[in-house]
Every structure is written in structure tokens, then in C-alpha cells.
Write a protein that binds this DNA or RNA. Structure first.
Lengths: 352, 352
DNA sequence: ATATATTGCACAAACGTTTGTGCAATATAA
DNA sequence: TTATATTGCACAAACGTTTGTGCAATATAT
């Protein structure tokens, strides 16, 4: 069929998708006229109603859709946001990503998702990748440890905001939970329930976030005039393995803790595994609080007390902020989102 | 400083990023020479070593990085894959996405992630969005019910592959679990344990996948000469609510099932919630098998028997297939990935 | 009638690449 | 010495947009 030949010919470079040029040829009008009409600038450029109509009609008929790549090149704006997370399989980041994508799409933005896999080398590579793709802005949950590669970005005036994790050594803004408060509340709760030996299993200490959570743990002790045993603070990665191993080490101490505070959901899962393996009974033999809630925590027996982060809100606020920055509406302010301590049945009352 | 002025001037359109043009000006050579050198085509185009060296040196100094948007426009290839899932917060899709991104990045591809939120209208909008962004290929877990919008895509010769869910009414290839086998195995196991009243809580029946899983359930009955009560098959969405509600309905039947087979992880969670709420004891009062494994299932008491899908492999294979299709190496073959029945403690042995 | 405004459009440059072609200058051959 | 190869590069078109400018043709004013 003739039509197929036509499609085949055009398809060599553009898969047969209609372009402004195509419409302009078909209708014998200039490309600029077509562009202006399809961008709703007909009035502004005094284009006759007759022309407007035939162009709109034809564009609809052949199913014209703008080439966002070409638009991006010409405008130096791609309507694209780079989202980098250390592990998209972690529900915390998955939920955040969902809300980021949803909010971004409302504003015609799309998300390029990259996963650094908690590896700073990949993080650097992916950062360059995203820059090459000319994203209009970046939302990043960094691996931590070094932020020089991010400082380069802001020097190039590319909008960047951190989520969850951040660096206070730079002025790069961030949206995160109130990590201090979260751990303070949880620790205070444990102390109020009579615990004085509380194990704290940490993530990568190169993160401010970890230091803040640790500070909450410390200050809750101080405010209650409780000494801190340094050997109860342990662990250095956000992983199930760390949760598992650190729990075993804590249990082997001369005076093992009566409670454990796990610094994120992966660590918490590792703790649960270890407890399971050693056939310990929660909470009578060991109490547990996990930083990060998870649907299944309420179904475990006993159910597990958790510090719930509002990852939906963190994601949404990050998008709003980055969009404002992109549009030069205002500079981004760092924000701390409150956490909620969800009391369940994993903390034993030693005072009762 | 002079340098800053320079950056500011250039930054108006390109945030101060160096371009081929910039290098060409700085070094008084033509743009084409620079392009060819930086693409490793110096030999091929007989460019003198002297020129090659100064260009490479200067490019490194000013930190040249190619503009992938411009490259994409010129080559009609964006090194971008559109990934559409119905819910990135579902661990099944999150894990799949992680593996897709990882594998794609190896081949210099990046992922544009969109979430249809199980909504076919959003699915259609996002599909157009991805087309406008000129993705080189699409990996989609469709909402289901209608695939006309996808058929349009393949007519435009844009590589497309379904994952998890699919349509047999079209010839669009897919990578999915062996859904029939998964449910057959689980049902057979339940029957072998003496269950003859097995509730099946389904997801959206507009999906072939649901029909296949249902078929596995049916044929296992037939092969064991067991009759099927139609009122034991219930539910129509992949959601926790469906799992919760359907469980309650099943329990209110005159002859309630002695076991439930939940068709995905969200439904399974809803079943667990309902069981929890009604203080039922698994497995003595009700047995349970969930299609989809989850780390927490092994920590519940009792632990829950599950049909494990290999979402990592599904993701990886989908990328490999779509890349082959993009490079015209070969047409994509639909594949079914085996599932694994993980026996735990949630199935009561009525024969013991 | 001539001078000025308005209407409706076409043309061309630019965004940053890649790639086909042409053309000097030098080197080799006859 | 003249004809032919080879070397090394520049030029220009194209990808699909947007946007500033120019220029006819018509309409209005004097």
C-alpha cells in the first residue's frame, strides 16, 4: 500500500512520527506558523482563523505530538528530574519515589530513576549520567561520606536537593525526617519503660542522619541521667546483615542490652532474624524498636514498636521545592519532617 | 573574576557546560574534528596525532561531557527506556525496577520511571508522555483490561515488552512467571494436605495473568478429581482491601474454606490482617498460601508458605530482550519464568 | 492620490550533536 | 616536470523545535 511506503520512508529517522515539518509540508504553510498555532500563540502572532483551523485539524488527524527531545534541546529545559536513591527495593525509597513521580507528573515532569546501590562510585557515575541527560533538577538520597561531587553540581547552578540523607558540611538543602527527635522519643520511651541498657545498631556513620539519630539516643540518656555504655552502640551499614550480626554481638556482651533500637528497616529486619534464630522472646527477653515502620510490623507476634517516617511527604515536598528552584521562584529551605512513634507490643515494661 | 563572567555569559543557555563548539573555538579547529576525535574516530578520519592530543587534553581540562539530548535528537536514539509499573511501592515491582535499572545502566541506558497507579487513564497519558520523550523502548506492566493503546505503539515499530501482566489477544511479547504452574503447585500442595475447600482471592480478572493463575487452581482440582465450588473464587483487584474483605466473605460462607490462596502479596497482606483481626489461628483454623514471597513471611508465626516469583530475573530478561529488539538483533520471544513453592508452616495437614 | 498601519505569513538562526563531502596542501609516482 | 595519491582538515546539512525579524499584501487615514 502507498501509505505503508510513505511510513517506511519517513520512519528511517523518526519512526514515522509526524513533525512540524510534516504538517508544514502537507499544508503549505511555514513551520513557524504551525509551531505557534500548536503552542496557542495564534492570537499573539495574528494568525488567521482559517489557518489556525486547518492546522489544528490536520495535527489532530495525523496525531501530532511534540518531540520533547527537540524541545529540550532548543529550550535547554527537559522537564526531567533525576532521582537517585541508594536502593529502590527499600520500601522507604520506593514509597518516596512513588510520590515524587506522582507529584512531578502533575507538573509535566518525568523522573529518570537511578539506583546507586549504596556505592559511591556508582553514585558518581550516575550523577554524570544524569548531568549528560540535562535533567532540570536532581533529587538525591546520597550514599554519604563524600559530597564533593554534589558541590560541583550546585556550582553549575543545577537545582539539587537531598532527601533522607544529607550533609551539613555543605549548604545543599535537604528534606529529611526529624531524625534526632525520632530517636530521642524512642529512647525516652524505652527508658521510661525501665530500660537502662539499650543497644543502638547504626547505619553508615558517614551520614549526618546517623549522627543525628545517635544524638537523639544520647541526649535521651543524658536527660534521664543515664550513663551510656559505648559498646552498646554498634554497626556501620544500612543492611540486614548488619542488623543480624550486630544483634549477635550485642547479645554476647557481658551485660547484654535489654532493648535494641535499630536505625532503619533493613537493620530492623536483621535484628528480627537474629532474634528468631536464637529463639528469643520479644519483649520479655529482648525489647525492640525499629526506625521505619512497615506494614508487616503490626502483624508480627508480638507487633513491633516503630518510628514511622512520612516518606510520602518527604517526596512531595522535595518535588515542590525542586520545581520552585527550577523556576527561580525561591531558594530551597531545608526541612525536617516530624516522625511518629507507633507504640506496639515489642517493649517490655521493666517497671511493672 | 573574568572566569565567572565567562561562565555567566555562557550559562544563559547551557549552564556553562562546555560544548563541542566551545572546544572548537578555543582550539581553532572545526567542530567536526572535535566530534570525531572525542568519539574515537581519529584514525578513521586521518586526524593528525597533534590535533588529537590537544583536543583530548583540552576536553579533559574543561570537563567536556556530551549533551545526550542533542545526541538523542541527532541520532533519533535517546538511550532511554520507559518503565511503566502499576505501583512502584509494591516490592515485587520495586525489585524488578532495581534489576532493570542496573542491567540497563550497564548498556548505557537510563530508565524513565512512570507509575500508572493501577489506573488505565493514567496509563494512557503516561504512554503518550513516554512516546513524546522518544524512549528507545518500553517495559510495561500494564493495568489490564484494554491493550489498544499498546497495539498502536507496536504499529509504530517501537520496541515494547510486557512484564508480569500481559495480553494474549495481542502478539506483544511478555516475560512473566509461570503463573499457571505456580498456582497449580500451590493448589496441589493444599489438596495433598487434605484440603478440599480452598478459597481463591483474585486480582483484576481483566488480566490474563489472573486467568492463568485461576486455571492452575482449577486444573489442580480436576487432576485430583475434586469439585470446585464457584463461590470459593472471589475478589477482583490487586489490593490489601480486597484481601481483607474477601477473606471476611469467605469466612461467612456456609461451608467456609479450610485454606486460602491469595493471588498476590497485597491481597495476601489483607488476608493476614483479616485473620489477625478475627483472632484466627493459622494453620489449624485456616491455612494460607500467598502468591509472591516477602522477607517478612518467614518471620511471622507461623511462617507463611508462599509462591516465590523471580522478579530479579524477569527484570533482567526484559531489559536484555528490549535491547536486542532495539538493536534489531532478533524479535522478542515471550517467556515464562518458573516459580518456587516455599513450604513453611501455614498449611495444616488435615491428613495427619 | 499618496502615506501609513495592519494583517498574515515566510525565512533564518539557534540549541549541540553527527556525518557526508569538498578542497587545499603535501607526498608519491610516472 | 607533470599527474596522481594521500593527508588533514573545514564546511554544511540534518535531527525537530522555538523565536526574532522581514516583507509582501491589504486596509485605513490624509
Amino acid at each position: 500500500m502507498l501509505w505503508e511506503v510513505c511510513v517506511t520512508l519517513r520512519s528511517q529517522s523518526n519512526k514515522g512520527m509526524p513533525t512540524l515539518k510534516q504538517i508544514s509540508k502537507d499544508l503549505n504553510v511555514s513551520i513557524s506558523i504551525v509551531s505557534r498555532i500548536l503552542n496557542g500563540k495564534a492570537k499573539e502572532f495574528r494568525i488567521s482563523n482559517a489557518t489556525v483551523e486547518i492546522v489544528l485539524k490536520h495535527a489532530k488527524e495525523i496525531g501530532y505530538a511534540p518531540n520533547l527531545i527537540a524541545k529540550g534541546l532548543q529550550a535547554s529545559q527537559t522537564f526531567t528530574i533525576g532521582l537517585m536513591v541508594p536502593n529502590i527495593a527499600n520500601p522507604f525509597f520506593a514509597i518516596m519515589a512513588k510520590n515524587i513521580e506522582k507529584r512531578a507528573f502533575k507538573s509535566k515532569y518525568s523522573i529518570i530513576l537511578v539506583d546507586s546501590n549504596e556505592n559511591i562510585e556508582i553514585e558518581k557515575q550516575q550523577l554524570n549520567n544524569l548531568l549528560g541527560r540535562k535533567v532540570d533538577g536532581l533529587i538525591v538520597a546520597p550514599v554519604g561520606g563524600n559530597c564533593q561531587h554534589f558541590i560541583k553540581i550546585v556550582k553549575q547552578k543545577i537545582p539539587l536537593i537531598f532527601v533522607d540523607r544529607y550533609f551539613t558540611e555543605s549548604t545543599i538543602p535537604y528534606i529529611t525526617s526529624n531524625n534526632y527527635q525520632g530517636c530521642y522519643d524512642a529512647t525516652k520511651h524505652l527508658i521510661e519503660m525501665g530500660h537502662s541498657h539499650i543497644g543502638l545498631i547504626c547505619g553508615n556513620n558517614a551520614n549526618e542522619l546517623v549522627q543525628e539519630r545517635t544524638r537523639g539516643y544520647h541526649e535521651a540518656h543524658q536527660d534521664n541521667a543515664l550513663p551510656i555504655s559505648p559498646n552498646l552502640t554498634i554497626g556501620n551499614t544500612f543492611s540486614t546483615e548488619n542488623g543480624f550480626d550486630s544483634t549477635q554481638k550485642l547479645l554476647q556482651l557481658d551485660t547484654p542490652p535489654t532493648a535494641i533500637l535499630a536505625m532503619n528497616n533493613l537493620i530492623g529486619f536483621g535484628v528480627l532474624q537474629a532474634i528468631n534464630e536464637h529463639n528469643l522472646v520479644i519483649p520479655s527477653q529482648l525489647s525492640l524498636v525499629i526506625f521505619d515502620d512497615h506494614p508487616y510490623l503490626s502483624l508480627l507476634s508480638p507487633s513491633i514498636t516503630a518510628i514511622k517516617q512520612n516518606s510520602e511527604k518527604i517526596g512531595e515536598m522535595a518535588v515542590k521545592a525542586i520545581l520552585k528552584e527550577i523556576n527561580n521562584e525561591c531558594d530551597i529551605q531545608s526541612k525536617q519532617i516530624p516522625t511518629t512513634l507507633i507504640l506496639r507490643d515489642s517493649v517490655f515494661n521493666l517497671k511493672a
